[in-house]
Computed example of a mutant assay.
Amino acid sequence: MQGVSSFGLSAVSNIFADRTRIGLPAFEFTVCSDHIGLLRTDLGLLMQVTAGPEAISGADLVILLPTEARPLTLHAPIIEAIKGAYRRGAIVSAYCTGTLLLASTGLLDGRRTATNWEFAAQLAQLHPAIRVDGEALYVDEGRIVTGAAAASGIDMCLHLLRREHGSSVANGVAREAMVASRRESGHVHSLLPISPGDRTAHSGSDDTPLTEVLAWARSQLHRALSVNEMARQALMSPRTFARRFREATGTTPHAWVLEQRLDRAEELLETTALPIHKIAQEVGFRSDSVLREHFVRRRGVAPRDYRRAAGRRS
C-alpha cells in the first residue's frame, strides 16, 4: 500500500533476514501489495513491488505493516487473500495502523487487539466488536497477533519467532539484529533489556553502569544474586540502584533476574541434552522442582514437556 512505513519494512525484513550462515532457520520474505509496480513509502522512497495478493496464498505468516495512507482500508482482493490465508491455517499479524487495516477483514472482531495508543479510540469507534488494548506492546490471540507502534513490531515478530521456533532462535536473531530479545507485553512504556546486545533506553540519563551490571548479572545466573550485590557492581546505593533499575526496565531486579533464569533454562532445554536438575543448577534454581514451578507458571507446561515439544518443532 502506498505510504507504507519505511521503518516497518526495514525492521520486519531485518528480523526475517537470511541468517542460515550462523545456523538459524531460513525464512522467505516477500513484500506484496495490491499495487504492482512502484510503491512510495512514508519517506518518499520508491520501491519496486512485483508480488500481488496471490503471494499471500502460500504464506505461513502474513504481516500488515503500518502506513500513512488514508483511508485505512484494504481493497477487496487483499481482504479475501488474507481471510483465505487465515482459513488455510496461516498466522495473520499487524501492528500500529496496520491493525486498523486488519480490522477491515473482520478477523479481529471479538478479539483483544493491540494498536498504537494514538489510534486506539479510532479503532474502537470504527470497530466496536473489537476489544482494543491501547497499552499492550502486543497481543497474542493464537493465529491472530497484533502490536502497538513503531518498535513494538520488532517485539511482536520476536515473540512470534520465540513461540514458533523457540527462545534460542529468537535470541539468536535478536543478537544478530542488535535489538532487545524480549520486552514483555505488559505496557507500552516498559523497557526490558534482555540480551547481551541490548541497550537500556531511559531518556535523560546515562545508563552505562546499569547496562554493564545487567551483562554481568547474566553471566552469574548460576548463583544467588541480591539487589545489594548488583548495586555494588553498579557503584550505586541499593536504593538508588532499585530506583534507576525500575526507571530503565519497568520492573524490579528480582523479577528481571527470574526472567533471565527462565530464558536461559528455555535455551538449554532447546539446545542441550542436560538433565533437568543440571539445568536448574546452571540457571540458579535450588532444585528442579523450583524450576518446574516457575516454568509452569510462565509456559503452562513442565520443562520436560517443553523440551519434548521443542524437539518436535526443530
Score class of each variant (00 low, 15 high):
residue 38 L to M: 08
residue 227 V to C: 04
residue 17 A to E: 11
residue 261 R to Q: 06
residue 191 L to F: 14
residue 75 H to M: 04
residue 57 S to A: 14
residue 93 S to D: 01
residue 249 T to Y: 12
residue 133 D to N: 09
residue 280 A to V: 06
residue 210 L to K: 05
residue 235 L to V: 06
residue 119 F to N: 10
residue 211 T to P: 04
residue 48 Q to A: 09
residue 226 S to P: 02
residue 93 S to W: 03
residue 40 R to K: 15
residue 20 T to L: 02
residue 205 S to W: 14
residue 61 L to Q: 05
residue 129 A to P: 08
residue 186 G to V: 13
residue 123 L to A: 06
residue 159 H to K: 07
residue 220 Q to T: 09
residue 261 R to Y: 09
residue 306 Y to E: 06
residue 212 E to V: 09
residue 180 A to Y: 06
residue 102 L to P: 00
residue 123 L to S: 04
residue 225 L to C: 08
residue 304 R to P: 02
residue 178 M to E: 14
residue 220 Q to W: 06
residue 147 G to I: 01
residue 27 F to V: 07
residue 62 V to Q: 03
residue 89 G to P: 02
residue 45 L to K: 12
residue 298 R to P: 11
residue 311 G to L: 13
residue 116 N to Q: 03
residue 214 L to C: 00
residue 209 P to Q: 07
residue 127 H to C: 15
residue 22 I to Y: 10
residue 103 A to E: 04
residue 111 R to T: 03
residue 39 L to R: 12
residue 236 M to Y: 15
residue 62 V to W: 00
residue 280 A to S: 15
residue 20 T to A: 15
residue 288 D to H: 13
residue 80 E to F: 01
residue 163 R to C: 03
residue 143 R to Y: 13
residue 252 T to Q: 12
residue 63 I to L: 05
residue 131 R to D: 12
residue 61 L to Y: 00
residue 264 R to A: 05
residue 11 A to T: 00
residue 201 A to P: 03
residue 55 A to E: 10
residue 118 E to S: 13
residue 107 L to S: 07
residue 81 A to M: 04
residue 152 S to Q: 09
residue 299 R to D: 08
residue 148 A to G: 07
residue 253 P to T: 03
residue 179 V to N: 12
residue 235 L to N: 15
residue 295 F to V: 10
residue 120 A to T: 09
residue 279 I to G: 04
residue 184 E to Q: 08
residue 304 R to D: 13
residue 106 G to T: 00
residue 159 H to S: 14
residue 50 T to C: 14
residue 193 P to Y: 13
residue 170 A to V: 06
residue 151 A to S: 13
residue 146 T to G: 03
residue 144 I to W: 04
residue 235 L to W: 12
residue 241 F to V: 02
residue 251 T to D: 07
residue 164 E to W: 12
residue 312 R to F: 15
residue 158 L to H: 02
residue 26 A to V: 11
residue 218 R to W: 11
residue 148 A to L: 03
